[in-house]
Amino acid sequence: MTLAFTLCSINYLAQARTLGDSLRQTNPDWQFVIGLVDRLAEANLPEELVPAYPMIEVDRIEIEDFAGMCDRYDITELNTAVKPYYMDYLFRHHPDATEVIYFDPDIIVYQPLTRLSASLAEANLVLTPHTCSPINDWLAPNELNHLNTGIFNLGFIGLRRSEETLRFVDWWKKRLAYECRIDLCNGLFVDQHWVNFAPVYFDRVQVERHPGYNVAYWNLHERTISRDGDRWLVNESELQFFHFSGYSPYKPEEISKYQNRFTFNDRPDIVALFQDYGNRLMTNRNDVYRTYPCHYIKPPKTLYYQRVRQALKNPLNQLIAALEK
């Protein structure tokens, strides 16, 4: 059995539902669950906002010192840090799951993922790099940005049940318990930099270069979208899944808030794809979900001052602070 999951707080449930709808249509034999990094009891969602997919609340998966993680991390860091903990939980509680696949909630799957299933018959892990060919300008994101944020995009990862995979998950859990921060000066960008080590530390790690995998703003320079009837194509190959990272239906003129290389005028090939995604989000009540605050996250100012206090515990920082008085 293949088990696919995503992670989000309530404010991203429209994205998670849209992902689930696409998987139900394209891969109906897969089981899909939502890892909810939030508290349903606190949100008191009306019945029409409760997704039709199973949800596993984060307090059920028994993360050691989860309260400490909530203190350390903002909402993006927290939703990312719990990823390997959910993988561990799903492998332990679903012994019939031979593969566990993670997708970020802002992904849509467009095809039966038979190629991925075939890969996971042999590979322990399947990863996708941000780019598969050089970028020849200095617009964002460029190769320097990817050096800062990680070679692989961890909005997707496929895992096959094996001792080696479980060893990877355990290693990743330990790294993300404390070091899943957005802290580029210290070489950290949530979970992604750690996985640069995966092909070195672990056996049978497949780097998937198919142009239809994990298509997103960061690799549009090397990929062109087209349509053949009902099929979406990328460089004449079938589009497997598209990652709408940084897109907002409330700013429909922007491909992503994280890039400045392309506009929709430059890339008419992707306009219909994004329009369809925006419509799906609104159908799935994005306008309502986005108003719900995450139960576990402190206000940004509180988190900022907490991090300052943590930094000042370091003796060198204490000396610097004293000299600056």
Rank of each mutant, 00 (worst) to 15 (best):
V215M: 12
S248K: 04
H130C: 02
T98S: 12
V50Q: 14
R209H: 15
I320G: 05
L13C: 05
D269R: 12
R24N: 12
I56W: 09
V234Y: 11
D170E: 15
N279S: 14
A216H: 13
C8L: 00
T263D: 10
C180L: 05
L36I: 02
T114L: 10
K313I: 08
L303V: 04
M282C: 05
E163C: 06
N79S: 05
P293V: 00
T291I: 06
V50T: 15
R17A: 13
G158P: 11
D29A: 10
V37F: 00
N153D: 08
W194C: 14
D276I: 09
F274D: 12
L113A: 02
G20F: 08
E208Q: 12
E122V: 09
I101L: 10
H210D: 15
V308T: 07
A216G: 15
N44V: 12
P199C: 05
N186W: 09
L159N: 08
A121R: 07
I151D: 03
F66C: 07
I61E: 09
I61V: 10
L36A: 01
D183Y: 10
K174S: 13
V308R: 12
L127Q: 01
P129F: 00
K251H: 13
V215K: 10
I63V: 14
N284R: 13
D59S: 12
L144G: 03
A118M: 06
A52P: 13
E163H: 10
N260C: 03
I108L: 13
M1E: 11
L23Q: 03
G35P: 07
L23D: 04
V58P: 06
I255G: 06
V271R: 15
N279D: 14
L125C: 01
Y12L: 06
E253G: 04
L144C: 02
W138A: 06
L154G: 01
F5W: 07
E122F: 06
Y85G: 03
T302A: 15
M55K: 08
F241G: 03
L40S: 11
Y292F: 12
D74K: 05
D21M: 08
Q192H: 10
V58H: 04
R307L: 08
L154N: 08
T2M: 05
E64T: 14
R290D: 04
S22W: 03
T128Y: 02
S9D: 05
A177I: 09
G229R: 04
T6E: 04
V109P: 01
